[in-house]
Design a protein around this nucleic acid. Structure first.
Lengths: 144, 144
DNA sequence: TGCTACCCTATAGACATTATAAGAATACCG
DNA sequence: CGGTATTCTTATAATGTCTATAGGGTAGCA
Protein backbone atom coordinates (compact mmCIF):
# COMPACT_ATOMS: atom_id res chain seq x y z
CA UNK A 1 0.00 0.00 0.00
CA UNK A 2 1.07 3.50 -0.80
CA UNK A 3 1.39 5.56 2.37
CA UNK A 4 -0.66 8.69 2.75
CA UNK A 5 2.61 10.52 2.95
CA UNK A 6 3.45 9.52 -0.60
CA UNK A 7 -0.02 10.22 -1.90
CA UNK A 8 0.06 13.67 -0.31
CA UNK A 9 3.51 14.27 -1.76
CA UNK A 10 2.34 13.47 -5.27
CA UNK A 11 -0.77 15.61 -4.87
CA UNK A 12 1.28 18.54 -3.66
CA UNK A 13 3.71 18.22 -6.55
CA UNK A 14 0.83 18.05 -9.01
CA UNK A 15 -0.69 21.22 -7.62
CA UNK A 16 2.66 22.96 -7.70
CA UNK A 17 3.14 21.72 -11.24
CA UNK A 18 -0.13 23.30 -12.32
CA UNK A 19 0.99 26.44 -10.53
CA UNK A 20 4.43 26.47 -12.10
CA UNK A 21 4.27 29.93 -13.69
CA UNK A 22 2.86 31.65 -10.62
CA UNK A 23 4.50 32.93 -7.42
CA UNK A 24 5.29 30.44 -4.62
CA UNK A 25 2.35 28.70 -3.00
CA UNK A 26 1.94 28.53 0.76
CA UNK A 27 1.69 25.27 2.70
CA UNK A 28 -1.67 26.29 4.08
CA UNK A 29 -3.09 26.90 0.63
CA UNK A 30 -1.92 23.55 -0.69
CA UNK A 31 -3.19 21.84 2.47
CA UNK A 32 -6.58 23.44 2.10
CA UNK A 33 -6.99 22.76 -1.61
CA UNK A 34 -5.93 19.14 -1.36
CA UNK A 35 -7.48 18.44 2.05
CA UNK A 36 -4.18 17.46 3.59
CA UNK A 37 -3.43 18.04 7.31
CA UNK A 38 -1.28 21.14 7.26
CA UNK A 39 1.40 20.13 9.74
CA UNK A 40 1.80 16.75 8.11
CA UNK A 41 2.18 18.37 4.73
CA UNK A 42 4.79 20.67 6.21
CA UNK A 43 7.04 17.70 6.95
CA UNK A 44 6.47 16.17 3.57
CA UNK A 45 7.30 19.32 1.65
CA UNK A 46 10.44 19.67 3.69
CA UNK A 47 11.54 16.18 2.66
CA UNK A 48 10.86 17.00 -0.96
CA UNK A 49 12.78 20.22 -0.62
CA UNK A 50 15.76 18.46 0.97
CA UNK A 51 15.67 16.02 -1.91
CA UNK A 52 15.95 18.92 -4.33
CA UNK A 53 12.50 18.81 -5.89
CA UNK A 54 11.23 22.01 -4.34
CA UNK A 55 12.40 25.52 -3.84
CA UNK A 56 11.25 27.27 -0.71
CA UNK A 57 11.08 30.86 0.30
CA UNK A 58 10.54 32.14 3.81
CA UNK A 59 8.76 35.25 5.00
CA UNK A 60 5.84 37.22 3.63
CA UNK A 61 5.02 36.21 0.08
CA UNK A 62 7.03 33.05 0.56
CA UNK A 63 6.02 29.46 -0.02
CA UNK A 64 6.98 26.53 -2.18
CA UNK A 65 7.51 26.10 -5.88
CA UNK A 66 8.96 23.39 -8.08
CA UNK A 67 12.69 23.35 -8.48
CA UNK A 68 12.54 21.09 -11.54
CA UNK A 69 10.49 20.73 -14.67
CA UNK A 70 7.39 18.60 -13.95
CA UNK A 71 8.56 16.41 -16.84
CA UNK A 72 11.65 15.51 -14.86
CA UNK A 73 9.99 14.50 -11.59
CA UNK A 74 9.12 10.81 -11.76
CA UNK A 75 6.81 9.01 -9.40
CA UNK A 76 9.48 6.46 -8.56
CA UNK A 77 11.77 9.14 -7.14
CA UNK A 78 9.03 10.56 -4.96
CA UNK A 79 8.06 7.14 -3.67
CA UNK A 80 11.62 6.27 -2.78
CA UNK A 81 11.90 9.42 -0.71
CA UNK A 82 8.63 9.10 1.14
CA UNK A 83 7.90 5.37 1.23
CA UNK A 84 11.22 3.72 0.61
CA UNK A 85 11.31 0.48 -1.38
CA UNK A 86 9.21 -0.18 -4.46
CA UNK A 87 9.51 -3.96 -4.31
CA UNK A 88 7.05 -5.98 -2.26
CA UNK A 89 9.76 -8.03 -0.56
CA UNK A 90 12.97 -6.54 0.82
CA UNK A 91 15.10 -9.15 -0.91
CA UNK A 92 13.79 -7.95 -4.29
CA UNK A 93 14.51 -4.28 -3.68
CA UNK A 94 17.14 -2.45 -5.69
CA UNK A 95 17.62 0.57 -3.45
CA UNK A 96 16.55 -0.80 -0.08
CA UNK A 97 17.69 -4.40 -0.27
CA UNK A 98 17.98 -6.54 2.78
CA UNK A 99 17.94 -10.24 3.35
CA UNK A 100 14.81 -12.03 4.51
CA UNK A 101 15.27 -13.39 8.03
CA UNK A 102 13.98 -16.86 7.40
CA UNK A 103 15.28 -17.42 3.87
CA UNK A 104 17.77 -20.19 3.45
CA UNK A 105 18.96 -19.77 -0.14
CA UNK A 106 18.10 -16.48 -1.73
CA UNK A 107 19.60 -17.24 -5.12
CA UNK A 108 17.22 -20.13 -5.70
CA UNK A 109 14.13 -18.60 -4.08
CA UNK A 110 11.16 -18.86 -6.43
CA UNK A 111 9.17 -16.29 -4.49
CA UNK A 112 11.89 -13.73 -4.83
CA UNK A 113 12.13 -14.53 -8.54
CA UNK A 114 8.44 -13.75 -9.06
CA UNK A 115 8.56 -10.56 -7.06
CA UNK A 116 11.58 -9.33 -8.94
CA UNK A 117 9.39 -9.61 -12.01
CA UNK A 118 6.60 -7.71 -10.30
CA UNK A 119 9.06 -5.07 -9.20
CA UNK A 120 10.32 -4.61 -12.74
CA UNK A 121 6.81 -4.23 -14.13
CA UNK A 122 5.95 -1.68 -11.46
CA UNK A 123 9.22 0.12 -11.86
CA UNK A 124 8.74 0.44 -15.59
CA UNK A 125 5.52 2.38 -15.11
CA UNK A 126 6.60 4.47 -12.15
CA UNK A 127 9.92 5.46 -13.66
CA UNK A 128 8.29 6.52 -16.91
CA UNK A 129 5.49 8.52 -15.36
CA UNK A 130 6.26 12.09 -14.37
CA UNK A 131 4.28 14.77 -12.57
CA UNK A 132 3.67 16.29 -16.00
CA UNK A 133 2.16 12.98 -17.13
CA UNK A 134 -0.13 12.85 -14.12
CA UNK A 135 -1.35 16.35 -14.91
CA UNK A 136 -1.90 15.38 -18.56
CA UNK A 137 -3.85 12.29 -17.54
CA UNK A 138 -6.17 14.46 -15.50
CA UNK A 139 -6.99 16.81 -18.33
CA UNK A 140 -7.44 13.84 -20.63
CA UNK A 141 -9.79 12.17 -18.16
CA UNK A 142 -11.87 15.33 -17.88
CA UNK A 143 -12.49 15.25 -21.63
CA UNK A 144 -13.85 11.70 -21.70
CA UNK B 1 5.10 -4.56 1.15
CA UNK B 2 4.10 -8.17 1.28
CA UNK B 3 3.25 -9.18 4.84
CA UNK B 4 5.16 -12.01 6.46
CA UNK B 5 1.85 -13.76 6.70
CA UNK B 6 1.60 -13.91 2.94
CA UNK B 7 5.21 -14.89 2.47
CA UNK B 8 4.81 -17.69 4.99
CA UNK B 9 1.61 -18.80 3.29
CA UNK B 10 3.34 -19.07 -0.07
CA UNK B 11 6.31 -20.89 1.45
CA UNK B 12 4.03 -23.38 3.16
CA UNK B 13 2.09 -24.03 -0.04
CA UNK B 14 5.32 -24.51 -1.96
CA UNK B 15 6.55 -27.06 0.55
CA UNK B 16 3.23 -28.86 0.49
CA UNK B 17 3.33 -28.77 -3.29
CA UNK B 18 6.70 -30.48 -3.31
CA UNK B 19 5.27 -32.97 -0.83
CA UNK B 20 2.12 -33.60 -2.84
CA UNK B 21 2.48 -37.37 -3.25
CA UNK B 22 3.38 -38.04 0.38
CA UNK B 23 1.22 -38.34 3.52
CA UNK B 24 0.05 -35.14 5.29
CA UNK B 25 2.71 -32.90 6.73
CA UNK B 26 2.52 -31.59 10.27
CA UNK B 27 2.48 -27.90 11.14
CA UNK B 28 5.58 -28.32 13.27
CA UNK B 29 7.51 -29.90 10.44
CA UNK B 30 6.62 -27.15 7.99
CA UNK B 31 7.43 -24.54 10.62
CA UNK B 32 10.79 -26.05 11.29
CA UNK B 33 11.78 -26.54 7.66
CA UNK B 34 10.77 -23.03 6.64
CA UNK B 35 11.77 -21.31 9.86
CA UNK B 36 8.28 -19.99 10.51
CA UNK B 37 6.96 -19.42 14.06
CA UNK B 38 4.75 -22.43 14.64
CA UNK B 39 1.75 -20.75 16.23
CA UNK B 40 1.69 -18.07 13.58
CA UNK B 41 1.82 -20.68 10.85
CA UNK B 42 -1.05 -22.48 12.52
CA UNK B 43 -3.31 -19.47 11.94
CA UNK B 44 -2.17 -19.06 8.39
CA UNK B 45 -2.77 -22.67 7.45
CA UNK B 46 -6.21 -22.44 8.98
CA UNK B 47 -7.04 -19.48 6.75
CA UNK B 48 -5.80 -21.35 3.71
CA UNK B 49 -7.83 -24.38 4.71
CA UNK B 50 -10.98 -22.32 5.20
CA UNK B 51 -10.39 -20.86 1.77
CA UNK B 52 -10.33 -24.38 0.32
CA UNK B 53 -6.68 -24.63 -0.62
CA UNK B 54 -5.72 -27.17 2.01
CA UNK B 55 -7.03 -30.45 3.31
CA UNK B 56 -6.42 -31.19 6.98
CA UNK B 57 -6.47 -34.38 8.96
CA UNK B 58 -6.62 -34.51 12.72
CA UNK B 59 -5.18 -37.05 15.14
CA UNK B 60 -2.05 -39.13 15.03
CA UNK B 61 -0.52 -39.19 11.58
CA UNK B 62 -2.53 -36.12 10.68
CA UNK B 63 -1.39 -32.86 9.16
CA UNK B 64 -1.95 -30.72 6.09
CA UNK B 65 -1.89 -31.44 2.40
CA UNK B 66 -2.91 -29.55 -0.72
CA UNK B 67 -6.55 -29.74 -1.69
CA UNK B 68 -5.89 -28.52 -5.23
CA UNK B 69 -3.39 -29.07 -7.96
CA UNK B 70 -0.40 -26.73 -7.45
CA UNK B 71 -1.04 -25.56 -11.02
CA UNK B 72 -4.40 -24.18 -9.90
CA UNK B 73 -3.26 -22.18 -6.89
CA UNK B 74 -2.30 -18.71 -8.03
CA UNK B 75 -0.35 -16.20 -6.01
CA UNK B 76 -3.05 -13.59 -6.42
CA UNK B 77 -5.59 -15.77 -4.60
CA UNK B 78 -3.26 -16.38 -1.70
CA UNK B 79 -2.43 -12.70 -1.38
CA UNK B 80 -6.06 -11.70 -1.36
CA UNK B 81 -6.73 -14.08 1.51
CA UNK B 82 -3.79 -13.12 3.66
CA UNK B 83 -3.00 -9.52 2.70
CA UNK B 84 -6.14 -8.22 1.10
CA UNK B 85 -5.85 -5.75 -1.77
CA UNK B 86 -3.27 -6.00 -4.54
CA UNK B 87 -3.52 -2.36 -5.60
CA UNK B 88 -1.34 0.25 -3.93
CA UNK B 89 -4.22 2.65 -3.38
CA UNK B 90 -7.66 1.58 -2.12
CA UNK B 91 -9.43 3.48 -4.87
CA UNK B 92 -7.65 1.34 -7.48
CA UNK B 93 -8.53 -1.98 -5.88
CA UNK B 94 -10.86 -4.42 -7.62
CA UNK B 95 -11.74 -6.62 -4.66
CA UNK B 96 -11.19 -4.25 -1.76
CA UNK B 97 -12.19 -0.91 -3.20
CA UNK B 98 -12.90 2.06 -1.04
CA UNK B 99 -12.85 5.76 -1.65
CA UNK B 100 -9.89 7.89 -0.62
CA UNK B 101 -10.84 10.26 2.21
CA UNK B 102 -9.38 13.39 0.77
CA UNK B 103 -10.11 12.81 -2.92
CA UNK B 104 -12.43 15.29 -4.54
CA UNK B 105 -13.07 13.75 -7.96
CA UNK B 106 -12.07 10.16 -8.32
CA UNK B 107 -13.01 9.82 -11.97
CA UNK B 108 -10.48 12.43 -13.04
CA UNK B 109 -7.73 11.54 -10.57
CA UNK B 110 -4.44 11.15 -12.41
CA UNK B 111 -2.83 9.34 -9.49
CA UNK B 112 -5.53 6.72 -9.44
CA UNK B 113 -5.16 6.36 -13.20
CA UNK B 114 -1.47 5.55 -12.89
CA UNK B 115 -1.99 3.11 -10.06
CA UNK B 116 -4.71 1.28 -11.92
CA UNK B 117 -2.07 0.67 -14.55
CA UNK B 118 0.39 -0.56 -11.92
CA UNK B 119 -2.28 -2.80 -10.47
CA UNK B 120 -2.99 -4.35 -13.84
CA UNK B 121 0.68 -5.03 -14.49
CA UNK B 122 1.06 -6.63 -11.07
CA UNK B 123 -2.14 -8.56 -11.41
CA UNK B 124 -1.10 -9.98 -14.73
CA UNK B 125 1.95 -11.61 -13.19
CA UNK B 126 0.38 -12.72 -9.93
CA UNK B 127 -2.68 -14.21 -11.56
CA UNK B 128 -0.60 -16.17 -14.04
CA UNK B 129 1.89 -17.52 -11.55
CA UNK B 130 0.91 -20.64 -9.63
CA UNK B 131 2.52 -22.58 -6.82
CA UNK B 132 3.65 -25.07 -9.48
CA UNK B 133 5.37 -22.22 -11.33
CA UNK B 134 7.16 -21.12 -8.18
CA UNK B 135 8.42 -24.66 -7.68
CA UNK B 136 9.55 -24.83 -11.30
CA UNK B 137 11.37 -21.55 -10.99
CA UNK B 138 13.30 -22.90 -8.04
CA UNK B 139 14.49 -26.00 -9.87
CA UNK B 140 15.36 -23.85 -12.87
CA UNK B 141 17.35 -21.44 -10.70
CA UNK B 142 19.27 -24.31 -9.14
CA UNK B 143 20.46 -25.36 -12.60
CA UNK B 144 21.87 -22.00 -13.55
C1' DT C 1 -8.34 -44.24 27.09
C1' DG C 2 -4.58 -41.66 25.92
C1' DC C 3 -1.86 -39.57 22.55
C1' DT C 4 -1.36 -36.61 18.61
C1' DA C 5 -2.37 -32.87 15.99
C1' DC C 6 -5.51 -29.62 14.35
C1' DC C 7 -8.93 -25.82 15.79
C1' DC C 8 -10.18 -21.41 17.92
C1' DT C 9 -10.12 -17.04 20.52
C1' DA C 10 -7.85 -13.71 22.92
C1' DT C 11 -4.23 -10.71 23.70
C1' DA C 12 0.47 -8.99 24.22
C1' DG C 13 4.48 -6.75 22.01
C1' DA C 14 6.68 -4.33 18.62
C1' DC C 15 6.73 -1.20 15.15
C1' DA C 16 5.33 2.13 11.59
C1' DT C 17 2.20 5.55 10.16
C1' DT C 18 -0.26 9.62 10.81
C1' DA C 19 -0.86 13.69 12.97
C1' DT C 20 -0.21 17.52 16.32
C1' DA C 21 2.36 20.84 19.29
C1' DA C 22 5.35 24.53 20.24
C1' DG C 23 8.54 27.33 19.24
C1' DA C 24 12.97 28.88 16.52
C1' DA C 25 14.76 30.95 12.53
C1' DT C 26 14.50 33.62 8.53
C1' DA C 27 12.78 36.87 5.09
C1' DC C 28 9.97 40.58 3.56
C1' DC C 29 7.96 45.23 4.02
C1' DG C 30 6.46 49.49 5.69
C1' DC D 1 14.22 48.62 12.63
C1' DG D 2 10.26 46.23 14.20
C1' DG D 3 6.40 43.46 13.19
C1' DT D 4 4.32 40.00 10.52
C1' DA D 5 4.37 36.05 7.57
C1' DT D 6 6.19 31.93 6.52
C1' DT D 7 9.21 28.15 6.57
C1' DC D 8 12.14 25.12 9.56
C1' DT D 9 13.05 21.89 13.40
C1' DT D 10 12.41 18.68 17.05
C1' DA D 11 9.66 16.21 19.95
C1' DT D 12 5.91 13.42 20.94
C1' DA D 13 1.08 11.89 21.04
C1' DA D 14 -2.43 8.99 18.86
C1' DT D 15 -3.58 5.35 16.24
C1' DG D 16 -3.41 1.26 13.94
C1' DT D 17 -1.49 -2.94 11.96
C1' DC D 18 1.50 -6.64 11.86
C1' DT D 19 3.67 -10.31 14.21
C1' DA D 20 3.75 -13.52 17.51
C1' DT D 21 2.46 -16.05 21.67
C1' DA D 22 -0.69 -18.21 25.03
C1' DG D 23 -3.89 -21.46 26.51
C1' DG D 24 -7.04 -24.34 26.08
C1' DG D 25 -10.69 -26.98 23.10
C1' DT D 26 -11.86 -30.65 19.85
C1' DA D 27 -11.55 -34.40 16.80
C1' DG D 28 -9.44 -38.56 15.18
C1' DC D 29 -6.63 -42.70 15.58
C1' DA D 30 -4.45 -46.70 17.90
Amino acid sequence: MLSKKTKYAIKALVVLGKNADKPPMQISKIAEEERIPKKFLEQILLDLRNAGFLYSKKGAGGGYSLNKDPKDIFLVSIMRITDGPIAMVPCASLNFYHKCDECKQETTCGIRDVFVEVRDATLKILSETSIADVINRETTLINI
